[in-house]
Design a protein around this nucleic acid. Sequence first.
DNA 1: TCTAAAATTGTTATCGATACCATTCTGCCT
DNA 2: AGGCAGAATGGTATCGATAACAATTTTAGA
Lengths: 356, 356
Amino acid sequence: MKNEDEPKDKRLKGGDVQKLTMAEVAKYVGVSAMTVSRAFRQDASVSEETRKRIMEAVDALGYVLDLSAGSLSSRRSGFIAALVPSINNSNFSDTARGITDALEDTGLQLLLGYTDYSAEKEEKLIEAMLRRRPEGIILTGGSHTARARRMLDKAGIPVVETWEIPEEPINHVVGFSNGEAMSLLVRTLASQGYRRFGYIGGTTARDTRGSQRRSGFLKTVEELGLGPGRAISFGVPPITMEQGGQAIVSLLERWPDTEVVLCVSDLSAFGAIMECKRRGMSVPGDIAIAGFGDYEISSICHPSITTINVDCYGIGRQAAARLLDALQGSGEATGDEITLTGYRVVLRESTDRGAS
Amino acid sequence: MKNEDEPKDKRLKGGDVQKLTMAEVAKYVGVSAMTVSRAFRQDASVSEETRKRIMEAVDALGYVLDLSAGSLSSRRSGFIAALVPSINNSNFSDTARGITDALEDTGLQLLLGYTDYSAEKEEKLIEAMLRRRPEGIILTGGSHTARARRMLDKAGIPVVETWEIPEEPINHVVGFSNGEAMSLLVRTLASQGYRRFGYIGGTTARDTRGSQRRSGFLKTVEELGLGPGRAISFGVPPITMEQGGQAIVSLLERWPDTEVVLCVSDLSAFGAIMECKRRGMSVPGDIAIAGFGDYEISSICHPSITTINVDCYGIGRQAAARLLDALQGSGEATGDEITLTGYRVVLRESTDRGAS
DNA sequence: TCTAAAATTGTTATCGATACCATTCTGCCT
DNA sequence: AGGCAGAATGGTATCGATAACAATTTTAGA
C-alpha cells in the first residue's frame, strides 16, 4: 500500500523477472498446461518423449515449479512440521536430522520451529505451522496448552509426540520414559556401591523431560533406601556447561560428602567435571559424575563421562516413519500407537570406582 | 490415485474436519470474506468492533488462517529460505537461531535446509526452496554450482551469502575472511614465540571455509619465514572430535617437534587435546593447541582452548536484517553490499607459554 | 482387420484467500 | 445545507497449479 510508485517489476539483478508460469512452458512446447504439470510428477502418465521435450523447455526457460499454487489445488501442502525445544542442543538437532533424512525422497519438506522450552511459544508456533496446512506434525514432549491441543485436534492431521511418554497422548508417540531411564542409571551406580547420590538439573517448570528425570532420580533413590536424594536446581533449561559447574559447587557446599552426582544432561555433567578439576578435585576419585544424553563430548573428554545413550536420531526417523505410515495407510491404521525407543547406560571413566 | 475408496473425509480423531474457510467465518459473523481477511492483518482498515466480533467467531469455530491460499493471491509466500552446511554444528545452529530471532514479528517464516557441505545437495535444496517462492534466501559460503547461480539469478529475490567473503558475490554478503582470521591467529601465536606450526583440518574439497582457513595458515606461516607449514587433512568435513584426536597422532608422528597445532575448529582441537592427555602429553606444556569458532566447550574445558571467536549469532541476525532491508526499501537500496562481521583471537590455557 | 482396453493428452472448474475497485456511511468544514 | 474527505465494507476477478472428467490416440488381442 505504501511506496508503490514503480510498476510491478521490482527486482535487483538483471535476470528475467520470475514471471514464468506453467502455461507459458506449455505453449512453448506445444502441449497443454496439464501435461506439463503431469511431467513434473513421477507416476503421471506422460509419454517419455513428451516429458523429455517438456523438461528441456523447463531447463531452457529456467522455469521453477510453483508449489504454493499446486498445494492449493491439490490440497496437499507437502509440509511436515516439527517443533523442538532448541536447535542448539545436539540431541534435538540429531532428531531433526533424523526427520529430515526420513523425509528424503518423499516429496515432503520439513518446517522446523524452536519452542525455547516454552508451552506458550509452542502454542504460537503450532498455530503458525497449521496456517501452512502441514500434512503431519511432530512435537517434542507431551505438555501442551489447552488451545494447542484443541488446534491440533481440529487440524485432523497425524500428530507424533516424541522424546517422552505423555500421560494422555494426542495421537502417536515415539519416545521413552525419561524417569525410568534415570532410574536405571541410579540402580546401576548403586549396584556398584555408590550410596550418597546428588542430582543437578535446571528449574523444572518448563522442561518436562528434565523434571521427569529428576523425579525418576528421587523416586529411585528413595526406593533403594538411600535417604532423601540431594537435588538442586540451577538456571532455566537448557542448563549450560557453565551452570553445571556452578551447580556442583553449591551442591558440594550443601552436602560435602556426596559420592556421585547425576546431571540432567551431559553438558552440565561436563561443566561440573571441569569445575571439579579446576578446584583440584579428582573425578571419579573424589567424586563421581554422570550425565544424560551421550553427547559426542562424553566419549572424548577426559575422564570420559558415564551417561545414558538415547537414540536421538532414531527418534526423529521413527517419528517421521509413523507419520508417513499414517499418511499412507490412512484406512487400516490401528490408530494411536506408542513406539518405545531404546536407551542404555554407558559406563565410562567418570564413575569408575577402581580409578584414582 | 490408489486406495481411494472412502469419500474424502479421512481423518483420525473425532474433531471436526478441517474444512472451515474464511467465507464460512464471514457468513457466521455476517460480513464478507474480505472483511475477515482484513481483520487478520494489522494495517487493514476494519472497525475495532467488527474485528472483535470476527475474532470471537474465529475462536469459537476454531478457524485457522490458510496462508497457502493467501500467498498465492498476494504473491507473497511469507517464507525466507536459509541453507546451512549442518545443523548439528553449533556454530551454524547459532546462525540459524539469529535468523529466526531477527524474523520474529515480521510475519516471515524460516525454511531451513542442510546441505551437508555439498554443492550438489545445495543445488537441489535451492530448487526445492525456490519452488516455495521464498521472498529471500540466505546461503552459507560463496561456492555454488552454475545451475544454482542461474536459478538464484532468475528468482529475482535478494540473496545473502554468509560466513565468508565470496570472490564473486551474488548479491549481499554478511561474513568475514576465514583466511585472515586464521592468519591473525598464527601471527598472534608467533608473536608469543611459537615457531613450528602444525595444522589439522578436513579434506578440503567440500568445506570452503575450512580450505580458506588452511590456506590462510599456510600463507602466513610462509610469510613469517617459519618454513613450510605442517598441515594434514583428516576425514571429510565436518571433522569430528574423534578425528581431531586421530589427526594429531599422525601429525606428531610425521613432525614430532611441532610446537603448536591450529585446528580447523574447536571440536577437532578438543579431540586433539584429549588424545594428547590420554597419551600422557601435557597441553600446553608439551604441545600447544588452538581451535576456531569459540564453541562453548572451549571456555569450559581444561585446559581451556585458545580460539577465534566468531559472531555466529550476529551473522544470522545481520543476514536476516540485510534481507529485510532489501525487501522493504527495494527502491533506494544501494544494491549489493558486503557486511563484515567481527572476529577476535581468544587466548586461553591451551597455548599459554607460561603454563606447565 | 476390427474392437476393446490402455495410454496419452486436453478442457474446465476449482482450491481459498487477497488485490482492486466500487459503494456506503460518517462527520466536519465552509 | 451542501459537499467532500476518509473510514468501513462489499463484489468480483485472479493468483498458478491440479482434480476430475472428456477426448483422442495407441496398443493388444481375437
